[in-house]
Every structure is written in structure tokens, then in C-alpha cells.
Design a protein around this nucleic acid. Sequence first.
DNA 1: CGTACTCTTGATTTCACTCAATTCAGGTGG
DNA 2: CCACCTGAATTGAGTGAAATCAAGAGTACG
Lengths: 218, 218
Amino acid sequence: VLRTEEIGRMAGLSRSRVIEAGDVVMEEGSVADAVVTVGSGMLKLYRTLPDGRRMITGFATSGDVVGLAAQGNYVYSAEAVTASRVCRTARASLDGMAADNPAVQGRMFAITAADLTAAQDQILMLGCKSATERVCTFLRAMARRGGKDESLPTAYLPMMRQDVAEYLGLRLETLSRVFRRLKDAGLITLLDKTRVRLDDPDRIAALASGAERLGSDN
Amino acid sequence: VLRTEEIGRMAGLSRSRVIEAGDVVMEEGSVADAVVTVGSGMLKLYRTLPDGRRMITGFATSGDVVGLAAQGNYVYSAEAVTASRVCRTARASLDGMAADNPAVQGRMFAITAADLTAAQDQILMLGCKSATERVCTFLRAMARRGGKDESLPTAYLPMMRQDVAEYLGLRLETLSRVFRRLKDAGLITLLDKTRVRLDDPDRIAALASGAERLGSDN
DNA sequence: CGTACTCTTGATTTCACTCAATTCAGGTGG
DNA sequence: CCACCTGAATTGAGTGAAATCAAGAGTACG
């Protein structure tokens, strides 16, 4: 999951399918016979426990490559959270290219290495951070991605609250409550269902790192 | 972090240093100018938050390769938990080999991909599982590694309780309490400070997956 | 033999979870 | 166009699991 149009392009950008929100592109446990490159939209990647508990391990957006690290079988599922354009590249053809072209190999390695770093960021977050810290960390990360429409950074969150909660290792009620407290403190504005503006990026950053506490005592 | 003597061997197994418990082999943020192959002993890999909170992302044992995914700077630190034999391989020489030998590239990719999968396992654990589930999951994983000396699987835990706690995203007091409850339930035996025998592997497995609950109501 | 450490145990608090009710938004059909 | 329905999101009250604070027990080592 990293910006790279190259792999799709190298594969000739063969068939670029358009899919709808809710469509499952990849299923945990099934044979990893292809990788998926995201052209537009957003996918959620998740793993499931036998009893149904889930954890979203990441969101893939334009340019991201999904399922590259799979050896044999996919280790996570991928589902569209918005209408998306995706491109399947057969594993065989990818491996073929990799064998010939060391640059492709290197690219695949770099993508996987970056994914590993991201995964470890999430480990650090899940293991150490409080609910407020997690939410603020997430908002900052998403605001960085989405760019800043206005002068203030704005996070684009097309996925459901439930998905955000599952990514942060929280219940959606808790997420909702944190949003409310951030809103009450004047730190964020919920522009609409999918856009959250960070009105005070510095304090959000402080909250994300745990440097500041969101006391009800203002 | 995956079994592979190959990389060290390919590098000529040049200088195999012996280090002591507590020695830091690799520091988060510093220039990633080498990878480390573990010959014997055990290292802990950890990331740190600015305010000092830490999270151990994994333990590296004989055959594991550490620091491979680093692009530019290391993203985690590595410290010996027992006396260990390690081999540093210069990044430059590794990249040189990789350029010539596609098999090395492939190996590096496979190792990183496996690390990514392990990291996502940990994400799932940290995001979903209770303290008891985490501990049982960990015990099973370590028992699998360590082999079974006797007929019963036995986990070899040379690291401090604090380290285990930091790996599982728990406080060491909580870890201690879970151990006690497992012991009281007759599921494990603390043979000595570093060895935990799983007396009832099936029930440990059930507890690890959340299929069973450790009720104080026996 | 005492010092310093890890580890364990106990008492209490707190943060997030659970369960439950309500509001909100989007879509459908009368 | 409005009433209705559905699923998402919010809010509230109460509980609970793990964290925190604080001793105490066990071990290793000089």
C-alpha cells in the first residue's frame, strides 16, 4: 500500500475495473493470484478473527498497491469503501516482470517495506495510545493525505465511523464521544459527514502525541 | 525477521560479534547503514514514543534478519535480551549483492513480507484481544518456536516480564496476574524464571482465540 | 548480609466498553 | 411533498477490565 502507478502501468494497466462501495476485491485466506492497484476511490483492508472480531489494518487510496506481500494466500481482505477504480495484475505476470526487471523487484520491496513501517506505526498506536491520542493521530494522518482544500488542514473520511473505529481499535461510541469533545473544545469542525476540518492543528498534534490532555476542565 | 542464514552467509558471515544482554545493536532514527543477522541468542525490537512509552514489535532469534525494511533510517531499535551472536552486513554490500543476484532480492522481499504479516497479526491482537487472549496467544507462539523439550509444549521466555508486557500492550502487573490465573487454573507451570510449560495446550488455544473464558467461577 | 533488582500481590481508580435509547440523514413509496 | 423506513451516528447511564498506585516477596550479586 504505497503510491505507485508503476506496477499497474507496467502490467499494461490491463483491465481497469470500476467497483462500488461494499464490493470485496480480495478475501483473506483465498489464493493470492493477483495484486490490486487502486486507481481512484478508497479500499479498506482488514483481518478477521474466527469469532468475527475485525481490525482494519489500513486504507488504500489512489496509487496504492494491495496484496503484494501475500505469499500463497492473502492475509487480509480488501473492500471498497467508496466507488473505486482498481486494476488486477496477475501474480504470475508480476513475478515474470520482476524476474527480468530488477527495478520492479526493488519497487515491490520498497512498497512492502513502507507497509511494514506503517504497520509498526499502528502497533505503537494500539499498544500505547489513549482514545483521544489515537483519533488525533488518525485525523492528522488523513489530513496530510487529503491535502488542504482551504487554509486549514481537512481530513476526508469517506468510510463509515465503524471502519474508523475498527482501524483505531476503539468502539464507534468511543470514537463519537472523542469527536464530540474535540468539537466542544473548538479543535475540529465536522463540515459534513465525510469532512473534518482541523481548526487547531497544533493542539491536535499535541493531543496526538500525548503532550496535551483534553481536560473537561477548561 | 525471519529464518535466513543465507544473507549473513552470502555476506561471507564476515564479522560475527558476540554481544551481551542490554547491548543495543540498532537505534531507531539512526542511519540504516547495515542489517543485522542473529546467529544465536535473542534481540528485542522496539519503537519509542517521544514521551518514552515503548512498544516491542518483535523478538528476533537465531536466523532472523533485522533492519532489512529500513529505508534511509531505522524505524526501530534492537537490543539484546540475552547474550547473542550477531553479524552486521553493510547495507551497501547487501544492495550490491541484490543488484547482481535476483535470488537475494527475492529473499529480502520474502523476509519483509513475512515481517509485515507478523506485524498485522500483532495489530489484530492489540486491537481486538483481551489480556488473557493476548498472553495465551503469545505463549502458544513462543512454545511453537522453542520446540517441546518434554512431551508438553514449553515456551522459552528469556526476556524480562516488562518486555513481554510491552510486546503485548499490557502492564507488567496485568501480565503477572494473568499468569497467576492460568497457573491457578492448572493450565501452565512456571518451571523456572524463563520457562513456561503449557499443561493444557488445547485450553490455552481456546483461551487464545476467545473461545473459552477464564472465569473465576470454576 | 545487605543492596538492588525483578516480579508478585493488593487496593483503588479510570478509561473505554456495553447496553440502550434517541437523533439524524437518505432513500422509497404512497 | 410528506410520511415512513432503514441504517448510521450520537448520546446517556452503568459496568468492567486493565491501569495505576503502593507494598511486599523473591532472587541475584557484590
